[in-house]
Design a protein around this nucleic acid. Structure first.
Ligand SMILES: [Mn+2]
Ligand SMILES: [Mn+2]
Ligand SMILES: [Mn+2]
Ligand SMILES: [Mn+2]
Lengths: 219, 219
DNA sequence: CAGGTAAATTAGGCTGGACTACAATTCCCA
DNA sequence: TGGGAATTGTAGTCCAGCCTAATTTACCTG
């Protein structure tokens, strides 16, 4: 059984690898996990001996097949837990991450499978992040950022990259929850602004914000 | 913040004290927690220094006010979690204890309060154990064992002492879930047998089983 | 009331997971 | 292309929780 600490390392390596070049650097892990670089180095040796990662000093670390499977299980527990809390207790998408961060280590895979069934085998969590399936399969739906959209493009808000409670609340308060359908009415790179129309209501976002929002073609 | 280990010690001390003379002995804690007696002794010193218990070597340990408050919070989290799993996922009373045993350390008090509200501020968990309230109050409803009932007594099954999955499943399969109303039709001490009638159906239990079942006056 | 037994404590040791301080490596730019 | 800065790795230390073995205490019984 992997300890809570090991699960957190593996999940973090998974996420850093996904959002980069497929490798995780010691420093990235250290800051993501809130520990010192030396601590990461020694843990990487441990994980390597457990055959969860392949580690090349001064170069980086990547997950083995077993490590990837463990990461997917932890991510699955996290995301299904988040959705479960939203669906049953009406919690909001800015509240659930913190709770799931702890619960992901405490719920059994059996319980998670029941939650999965209860929720009707959902494909995405409250932030639009895809949910790994119990058989270990995992697909990332195609999408682009709102900033990449051209004027006139119709879209559906499918995923949020910046999951800080502040940004999520900003989106909710701006009438932009997950699933929102709308149309881009302006995208001025020089001005660093994207304006969208949602149900007749126009909202203007800064470019940085627009880059944190993923959309699929709408309507 | 109390660690998972500390929470487990405090909860166990609480339970051992309740089911005995108000004191917990080192050996009882060691076997309940599955650790060696020496380990318990050293932890008791730690807990004592944290002012969670008062510890008298060779005599026993009891909870301080702060220790009692912590124990009640852990028990509250455990029991509300159990009931939540039963109500939302239709889990059975023999399945939920194991899950709650882990989740009780992972769910925040804020989340538990929302679960409490969602469930309508229940007074008892799926096993009939009373749920401590968020203000720290805690009452144990009066009851007696089924074995203490006389012939003709009408009862309602209010709580189960032996919470092993096997016993709980036995009760379910015998048509004796929590809340069952019935009547004692025989109680032969010599034979070590108690017979009850539930909805016209008679069931005979051994004395040991009858002592593990608590009832309130029925009808 | 002495001695044996059961329970508890102490002593010493181990592992996982963290830190700091220092040394080595890599990278990047002048 | 050499040297300084940033990054990474190493060494040594600490603490929480656990263990076993040896010792001490308490209790009971003859
Ligand atoms: Mn999350
Ligand atoms: Mn999420
Ligand atoms: Mn339980
Ligand atoms: Mn219970």
């Amino acid at each position: 059984m992997a300890s809570l600490t090991v699960e957190n390392y593996i999940k973090t390596i998974f996420q850093v690898c996904l959002s980069g070049d497929g490798q995780a650097a010691t420093g990235q892990l250290a800051s993501a996990l809130g520990v010192s670089p030396g601590t990461v180095t020694s843990m990487l040796k441990t994980l390597s001996e457990s055959n969860l990662v392949t580690y090349t000093p001064y170069e980086g670390v990547r997950l083995t097949h077993a490590g990837n499977a463990l990461a997917l299980r932890v991510v699955r527990r996290h995301r299904l837990t988040e959705l479960f809390l939203v669906k049953t207790l009406n919690m909001t998408w800015d509240e659930v991450h913190e709770e799931a961060e702890h619960m992901e280590h405490a719920v059994s895979d059996r319980l998670i499978d029941r939650i999965d069934e209860f929720l009707g085998r959902p494909e995405a969590d409250p932030h639009g992040d895809p949910i790994p399936r119990s058989d270990g399969s995992f697909e990332i739906p195609a999408s682009r950022t709102l900033a990449e959209c051209g004027v006139g493009d119709k879209f559906r808000l499918s995923r949020v990259i910046d999951q800080s409670p502040e940004f999520l609340r900003f989106l909710s308060n701006s009438g932009l929850p997950l699933g929102t359908a709308g149309q881009v009415v302006a995208n001025r790179i020089e001005a660093g602004i994207v304006t969208v129309s949602v149900e007749g209501q126009e909202t203007t976002l800064g470019r940085a914000a627009a880059e944190k929002i993923l959309v699929t073609p709408g309507r």
